[in-house]
Design a binder for these strands. Structure first.
Length: 350
DNA sequence: CGTCTTTGACCCGCGC
DNA sequence: GCGCGGGTCAAAGACG
């Protein structure tokens, strides 16, 4: 299986940033364009992870979690910890705790009336619902929908994976609850929800229409439970502490990012890594997103790996950024417009 | 029988 | 107001 991790992002931060920009830079048309779909890509994630070469598990049944399981959990911190810190650096509140309230997690929309739509209002809405339910029942047999209760966007993180498998196994159990055709794309977008009760984490999986080997996975929300894996032995040989951390716990993100983070923290460990076949390519992608070259955001991150240190660089088929730039849907949501611009310029030069 | 996928319908936000 | 598109629901069916 080929896997290619490219980046992650916190879209909520983007929303805030977007709003900031829209108010502060309203006069700059160029900026307006730039932020139409801009994302922040913290440096810690601004490189593409290429897991495709020298992989011992060539068969298609290789599971995503297998790849994830090689992480070194001596350092249990998630890459997203850094990622969030990085992304949040210019912005005030860090991502909400698992028991976040809607207020906390409300997007920075000043005129949004949803800010106060937390428990009290929900209770009131419950009373209303009872009455409305009778009416609704009489009217239709549709389920009573919650009124006036806008759901704030959960923090979202997306990454691209070079894989032939759409639904990558990240250690959690997901239930597919929807599938929609994506505009301008022959590939549908699938919607998954974590099967654990009271865990509202969702993910969307979409395949790039330009590079069909690339799967875009967007995680939304925070896992409130440990990683349920796994009866199938995916964590075989994994240290217990790893299981405890397991990508769940405090981190809502795929366990792989722990490893990712770890590698970046070490900037390629000097000693040979046992699991290197999986991950030592991660830093060596020919594609390096770095729209925000601020070393202060994450000093641990080596965003410009030395090719001499990473001999596997450019071993895999180069990621088609122009193709991505033309992609629609999630890809456009996630790729920074600056990347698009740079690619455009490049194309124009050619 | 429980779990999961499929799929059409519905809801809702947004832009025009 | 209307249409469009994204996101979600839930019934029905498949599967082990």
């Amino acid at each position: 299986m080929k896997n290619l991790l490219i980046y992650a992002f916190n879209q909520q931060k983007l929303m805030e940033e977007k709003q900031k920009e829209s108010t502060q830079e309203r006069d700059s048309s160029a900026e307006k364009i730039a932020f139409s779909d801009q994302m922040m890509i913290p440096e810690s994630t601004s490189s593409l992870l290429d897991l495709s070469t020298d992989h011992p598990h060539k068969n298609s049944s290789f599971r995503f979690i297998d790849m994830l399981s090689v992480q070194d959990f001596a350092n249990p911190s998630s890459i997203f910890d850094d990622l969030l810190q990085s992304a949040a650096a210019p912005f005030p509140p860090p991502p909400p705790p698992p028991e976040y309230s809607e207020v906390v997690n409300t997007p920075a929309t000043p005129n949004s009336s949803s800010v106060s739509s937390s428990s009290a209002e929900a209770a009131a809405a419950n009373d209303d619902q009872k009455e409305e339910q009778d009416q609704e029942k009489a009217r239709k047999q549709l389920k009573p929908k919650k009124k006036s209760q806008k759901r704030p966007r959960e923090p979202r993180f997306a990454f691209m994976t070079k894989s032939e498998i759409d639904n990558l196994d990240d250690g959690y159990r997901w239930r597919k609850y929807g599938q929609k055709a994506v505009k301008n794309s022959p590939f549908p977008r699938s919607y998954y929800r974590c099967t654990s009760t009271a865990c509202g984490v969702k993910k969307r999986v979409e395949r790039s229409c330009e590079d069909t080997t690339i799967v875009v996975t967007t995680y939304e929300g925070t896992h409130l439970h440990p990683c349920p894996l796994t009866p199938r032995g995916s964590f075989a040989g994994m240290p217990e502490r790893l299981m405890l951390d397991g990508g769940g716990g405090s981190s809502s993100f795929p366990p792989m990012f722990h490893h990712h983070h770890h590698l970046y923290q070490q900037q390629l460990p000097p000693q040979p890594i046992q699991h290197q076949p999986y991950f030592h390519n991660l830093l060596t992608s020919p594609l390096s997103f770095n729209p925000n070259p601020n070393p202060n955001l994450n000093p641990n991150f080596n965003h410009n790996p030395n090719p001499a240190l990473y001999p596997n660089l450019v071993r895999e088929r180069p990621f088609s950024l122009p193709a991505l730039a033309r992609d629609d849907g999630l890809l456009q949501d996630m790729l920074p417009s600056k990347v698009f611009e740079q690619q455009k310029e490049k194309e124009e030069e050619d």
